[in-house]
């Protein structure tokens, strides 16, 4: 096998990442919705026949079916197809250590990337840089479902889109991955991954849509 050096690491230089959406958090006028920008936080994706086995070897709990997400240790694990998994840092500071790995999340993601290089049939994906990641918090339950009804043609109400559900859909006419986490009986949190090159447009559309809440 001929190859150039194998050091092209997407998780490198995390401190130099810049999001084109400079706003970290936006609260809607009536404080009903808070939108946060997690674009520069650590994440990685893998695809391929060997991806599931590789991640299980690494101790990652994989959702049973496609279009399901699980949440633990500040990570969301998204199964986007039978053989495609994304791991996203969704909550705390990426430099914080987390149990039981005793590593920062960035280090953990970087270690996964390195480990994958020598694993057969595991293809590293580029979601760290290809996608923006936003989260949405609501003050009153149901607000976010109403917000998304303004920008997305998929019914995201809890009755049909429970916690851990993933919708690979279109939001404000751009491709998006939307998933949901139920925080408490009274509130839900939504996450949205979308093409980074249209993230400024999408952020503006989201803030605009949140204006009435």
């Amino acid at each position: 096998m001929t190859a150039l050096n194998n050091d092209f690491n997407l998780s490198a230089a995390s401190h130099l990442r810049r999001s084109v959406v400079e706003v970290e958090q936006q609260v809607s006028p009536n404080a009903g919705v808070t939108i946060s920008n997690h674009t520069v936080k650590a994440r990685i994706g893998f695809r391929g026949k060997g991806a599931i086995a590789f991640l299980r070897e690494q101790g990652v709990t994989i959702p049973e079916k496609p279009n399901q997400a699980t949440f633990s240790g500040g990570f969301a694990v998204l199964r986007l197809s039978f053989t495609e998994i994304w791991l996203l840092d969704i909550e705390s500071d990426s430099n914080e250590t987390f149990e039981p790995k005793q590593k920062s999340k960035s280090e953990y993601i970087a270690a996964l990337e390195s480990a994958a290089k020598n694993s057969p049939d595991v293809y590293r994906l580029f979601c760290q840089h290809s996608h923006a990641l936003f989260s949405f918090n609501e003050r009153d339950k149901g607000t976010l479902a109403n917000l998304f009804a303004k920008i997305c043609g998929v019914d995201l109400r809890e009755s049909v889109f429970p916690s851990g559900s993933i919708a690979q859909t279109s939001v404000a006419r751009v491709n998006a991955v939307v998933f949901k986490q139920v925080i408490s009986e009274k509130t839900e949190r939504y996450y949205l991954l979308s093409d980074i090159s249209s993230s400024e447009y999408l952020w503006d559309a989201l803030v605009d849509a949140a204006g009435e809440f």
Partner: peptide, 14 residues
């Protein structure tokens, strides 16, 4: 009314 007209920008747009 409000119509979604997606636009892509490079990271260097600003």
């Amino acid at each position: 009314g409000r119509i979604f007209s997606p636009q892509k920008r490079t990271p260097m747009h600003k």
